[in-house]
């Protein structure tokens, strides 16, 4: 039958519509990003011109990027981002994997109730908890430290949920074999489940790192010291004091902040998709 050949398949009205919607949505999301990159290589005079071209008449990239890196503590912010994001990710995996294993593979009373609570945790926006967390941080005396940036995120309901879904697809026989081979439950988590769930871990890592690298809200509340500020806060400080209306270096700084994420995502894209879809199928 002709309609199942790929060429015809693509040209069916439904397919055209579907692709049109996807292209429009993609363009809407990409436009500000392209705009940002384009602004970051323009001289100040060209930024507010009425006409739009991607390439500026005069290439001003070197000046803008030099300014972004030297006149504001951007490298320091990015270093902070790296420290905070790696700490959060490491602790999240350390906490989520055993929780997810228990919820996916062990039988104990109250398991479904606990999982229900994880789902509720998934529904709560983090902003709702910021005031209690701030007070808690104050009582513990950890405000304005790295710990304040890390500790509210250590337990991730999303991580528990994602890992649990993935662990459920791993056959029980493998766990039974591991128990017979003499592995303890925790050893099973780290030596058997985690290596088998690598795609899910990569997918979660990207979500976690992107989320916390870009987080502005909580760091704004938790730290005041400039030397502790993560990238978005660093950009903000930079905008207020150094750049003023100088948008070129500001956009250059923003581009630099986004770049590591982009590179990381492109490198892990294949596993990212597998990690998200495999858990969902079963």
């Amino acid at each position: 039958m002709s309609f199942i050949t790929s060429a015809n398949f693509l040209w069916r009205p439904a397919a055209i519509l579907r692709h049109a919607v996807l292209i429009v949505t993609g363009a809407l999301i990409l436009a500000p990003f392209v705009w940002m990159v384009s602004l970051s290589i323009r001289p100040p005079g060209e930024i507010f011109r009425a006409s739009f071209t991607f390439w500026p008449a005069q290439f001003y990239g070197v000046e803008n990027y030099t300014k972004a890196l030297t006149q504001a503590p951007l490298p320091r912010s990015m270093g902070n981002g790296l420290i905070v994001c790696s700490l959060i990710l490491a602790l999240q995996i350390l906490v989520c994997a055993p929780c997810a294993y228990a919820l996916a593979k062990l039988r104990f009373p109250g398991r479904d109730l606990l999982f229900g609570m994880v789902l509720i945790g998934l529904l709560l926006p983090h902003q709702v908890l910021s005031l209690p967390l701030f007070i808690l941080g104050y009582q513990l005396g950890i405000l304005n430290t790295y710990a304040a940036l890390v500790f509210p995120y250590v337990v991730s309901p999303f991580g528990i949920f994602l890992f649990r879904q993935f662990f459920k697809t791993i056959p029980d026989d493998v766990i039974h074999a591991a128990r017979l081979d003499g592995l303890s439950e925790l050893t099973i988590v780290w030596k058997i489940m985690m290596p088998m769930a690598l795609p899910a871990i990569l997918a979660f890592s990207i979500f976690s790192v992107v989320g916390h690298w870009n987080d502005l809200f909580w760091p704004l509340i938790a730290v005041q010291d400039r030397s502790l500020m993560p990238p978005p806060l660093g950009i903000m400080a930079f905008m207020n004091e150094e750049a003023g209306n100088d948008y070129g270096p500001l956009m250059a700084a923003s581009t630099l902040v986004v770049l590591p994420l982009l590179v990381a995502f492109l490198a892990a894209q294949r596993w990212f998709v597998e990690g998200l879809t495999r858990g969902g199928i079963k």
């Binding site: 493998v174 039974h176 290596p195």
Partner: peptide, 20 residues
């Protein structure tokens, strides 16, 4: 007793080898 203390070994239908 836990499985490892029973001195038994098992072969599974799905083989249950560790893929990694």
């Amino acid at each position: 007793l836990r499985p490892k203390r029973r001195d038994v070994a098992m072969v599974f239908q799905s083989y249950a080898l560790y893929p990694h």
